[in-house]
């Protein structure tokens, strides 16, 4: 069986435990970057950034973001802005 396409989209499938597989993978394939939907999200003034985040920290952030009804990115942006202000003050 050819599994190229099944592999490409495996992050869309949910594992028996209810979790989506391969959720840490956030790198966009070039094909996705061409899709009209991607263009739609590009107009929001955001820039894509890819990080390897500590797994435990990532888990906490995910749960915390859900608890306070915010996006993970919103929290990271707030923390980074605070850090920037403090750093620039020194």
């Amino acid at each position: 069986m050819s599994t190229n396409k099944a592999d490409k989209f495996k992050s869309l499938m949910r594992s028996p435990s209810g979790n989506q597989e391969n959720k840490e993978e956030i790198i966009l394939p070039t094909e996705i970057a061409k899709s009209p939907a991607h263009e739609l999200v590009q107009i929001s003034g955001k820039k894509k950034a890819t990080f390897e985040l500590d797994a435990e920290l990532h888990r906490w952030l995910k749960v915390h973001a859900l608890t306070i009804n915010k996006d993970m990115v919103q929290i990271l942006e707030e923390v980074l802005r605070k850090y920037r202000t403090e750093t620039e003050r020194k």
Partner: peptide, 8 residues
């Protein structure tokens, strides 16, 4: 499916 990935 690519659109679904982007939305996800």
């Amino acid at each position: 499916l690519e659109t679904l990935t982007v939305v996800q």
